[in-house]
Nucleic acid binder design. Structure first.
Lengths: 150, 150
DNA sequence: GCGAAATTGGTAATCAGTCTCATTTTTTAG
DNA sequence: CTAAAAAATGAGACTGATTACCAATTTCGC
């Protein structure tokens, strides 16, 4: 694996944040520093580094692949609404993870992958607002019908 | 949600097998009974039923979505080579799953999703064959070099 | 039966991700 | 240091899965 400015930039960018970006998000950011970098290069390097274990690929549940430069032991919570991923690091999960690893090894299974799923605060609020709005509309429609039938 | 022949057919087909088919595979099969059914209808209904919990959706970014009509408690092993999914149902996993559910609830998390990852037997054999073949080629190249330098 | 609401088929469009290939960069061997 | 080999790049074409659109049809509550 040769050393290239592009690969370095991708890895640095990924390590500088803990936002689990998608390839195209990363591309967008990287273009500010390397205006001529291509999306293909970003994809190529991310896949390469992921297969070598330099970074992690998170692809469960969402529809776009995401990447993580943080190799320390931690877990991910994905918001089912906006698809963003945040980190979580608690002992109880680590213990369970250990148990899981043991159990699946006994079954003859190589590995497993999991994600927590939970609405992020932002989306929770957004959904509450939307619901209120929907109720408001429903109410005003009821009123219309009353006026009409009167 | 109205009753339609198409939706019934899709659900029946999905329940009749435990193969976790993709939408297009399902479409292919369904066309034998409903020749005029459209791929869009299959996708639409699968998504709808999944969002209502009538069926389950198994998605991995960068891969085709798969669907499962079996709502009984079981887990999935995905082959990282051919992407096929098989079922597994063992007590040790169920117990761990229970523990997980408890722990994440305490964290304030709604749900979680996991998949086991393991090469299926077919792919395991295929990869062994490929490796052998690669070695054979490497050997014959070595021999060529010897002949050449002699 | 009737009209509103839901659903359909067909097809166009989108979107993530991959592939190709001529050119450039990096590494290796002498 | 230099030349050849190997690896990587950028630009854009391409693919395959999924979604969007919309006129025509079907379903369902009354």
């Amino acid at each position: 694996m040769n050393k290239t400015a592009q690969r370095d930039a991708i890895l640095n960018e990924l390590r500088a944040h803990n936002s689990h970006p998608t390839a195209d998000k990363l591309y967008e950011v990287l273009r500010k520093k390397l205006p001529q970098i291509s999306l293909g290069t970003v994809y190529r390097n991310l896949e390469q580094m992921a297969s070598r274990g330099t970074i992690k690929k998170l692809s469960l549940a969402g529809h776009q692949k995401r990447f993580d430069g943080d190799l320390s032991r931690h877990y991910h919570i994905r918001c089912p609404h906006c698809d963003n991923i945040s980190n979580i690091k608690v002992d109880s999960l680590i213990n369970l993870d250990d148990e899981f690893q043991e159990v699946i090894k006994k079954i003859g299974c190589d590995n497993y992958y999991f994600e927590l799923i939970s609405l992020c605060d932002e989306c929770k609020n957004k959904l509450i607002e939307e619901q209120k709005e929907a109720e408001r509309i429903a109410q005003s429609k009821k009123r219309e019908v009353l006026v009409w039938t009167n």
